[in-house]
Design a protein around this nucleic acid. Structure first.
Lengths: 236, 236
DNA sequence: TACTATTTGTCCGTATGTATG
DNA sequence: TCATACATACGGACAAATAGT
């Protein structure tokens, strides 16, 4: 007999098949009974291997339903420069945006404070869904000072990129001044937008972007599907 | 008639009473009917005021139960230097630690990779609850290379501070090399430890601290009560 | 388990004052 | 002056969730 337990071989076999894409994220694995037959072992041996995979957060068992391959969370760096499209491309995903709502209105107290505006002031509002490989990754609401970026809504409509819309107004670079991260359970409206079960957790970030002179240019609130994303900081 | 709607006066009145501490975080407000009687308005007018307070995240309604004052989340900076005690003192909270478990064991694959150890290697393991004003704020599991910090467990037991325990070993300063942030719903064991309802969201950070030379010294996994904390980044 | 009272959530409607053209 | 639209406030009824017995 080899020195390593039998179930470790099953774990590595399944792990490799998942890594090869034989089972895609969200897919259901064969039942424990089927796996036991395939590997010619007892069901409990398969269960030990599946438990190890669950511990590594590679799969996820749902009683009465099956064992499912986890969506591997997309690493999403939030440092001095946060760029949605670049972040996703770096993670090997295809980014896209779906615009839900564009409007211009007077800013509320919080928005005025974040953007350092004297009230009353007008802001352009963008609301949309950020997609990763076609799946909803986040709901975004961003407000921009209307005086400084008069053509923001048109620019967003045509470019569907915040970075590009800033560039239209002659702003080549901008940085993240502050980010606040909280977690909540998804409301019914949010779970509908992000196509997730009500009650699943969401990561919310509240952030301010500034131009080179430190003047606020964007106040953004983002709700991430917590199953699909892992916010990362690299302070090296 | 005044130009501002009736409900705004009710909102500010309730908001001030909450700010004054007349209703503490976690307290239940009077019922909508009682508030309607007190302010001599219709219940719908009270509801409009409560909706505004809920929008500001000052209160939180639970159908069948009541309207509750939110726990104001403690801002918890995660930058280059993350210090639990200093973070809480800066937020005006009283920090404390409850040690759950201390042990020495061989590191697993993930821990060896994070700490850049050649396996097999021994690590000291700390598991505990971080308290804010006496309430559980987070469950922490940290592992330290045993060779480099031989007296870690004793130091943690006596000082109950990771920073102080490092100082015992002659390490005056250390910095955060990387942090990964995800959100999950609390498991039953975790919700018991943090004294929260099962199914409420938790913020999980996975982080590596390094010494001045960039050598990893701590691999930490922390589960925060998401209702009580807001992770903040300041990139100014 | 089942039942009941309480409390919030959602819907129907009515009335009034204000702004607009 | 009139018609219309809108915001505000009020009144009631029922649904849905919760808590206690």
């Amino acid at each position: 007999m080899g020195r390593s337990p039998l179930w470790t071989a099953i774990r590595t076999a399944l792990s490799e098949e998942i890594a090869k894409g034989q089972y895609a994220p969200g897919d259901r694995l064969p039942t424990e009974a089927q796996l036991a037959a395939r590997f010619a072992v007892n069901r409990h041996t398969v269960r030990r291997a599946l438990a190890a995979l669950a511990e590594e957060e590679i799969v996820h068992a749902r009683r009465g339903s099956g064992v499912f391959v986890r969506h591997v969370p997309t690493p999403y760096p939030i440092g001095r420069r946060v760029r949605f499209q670049q972040n996703l491309l770096a993670a090997g995903r295809v980014p896209d945006r779906r615009i839900l709502h564009l409007e211009t209105r007077t800013a509320n107290d919080r928005e005025c404070a974040a953007l350092r505006l004297d009230e009353p002031a007008d802001v352009h509002v963008y609301e949309g869904i950020s997609l990763s490989d076609g799946f909803p990754l986040a709901f975004v609401r961003s407000v921009f000072p209307a005086i400084r970026f008069p053509d923001m809504l048109d620019a967003l409509r045509t470019t569907r990129s915040i970075t590009a819309a800033f560039a239209v107004h002659g702003l080549a670079d901008y940085t993240r001044a502050s980010t606040e991260i909280t977690a909540k359970t998804a409301s019914s409206t949010l779970s509908a937008l992000l196509e997730l079960q009500p009650g699943t957790p969401v990561l919310r970030t509240v952030s301010v972007n500034v131009d080179g002179a430190g003047v606020p240019i964007e106040f953004g609130r983002t709700w991430f599907n917590a199953d699909r994303v892992a916010l990362t900081l690299d302070d090296t």
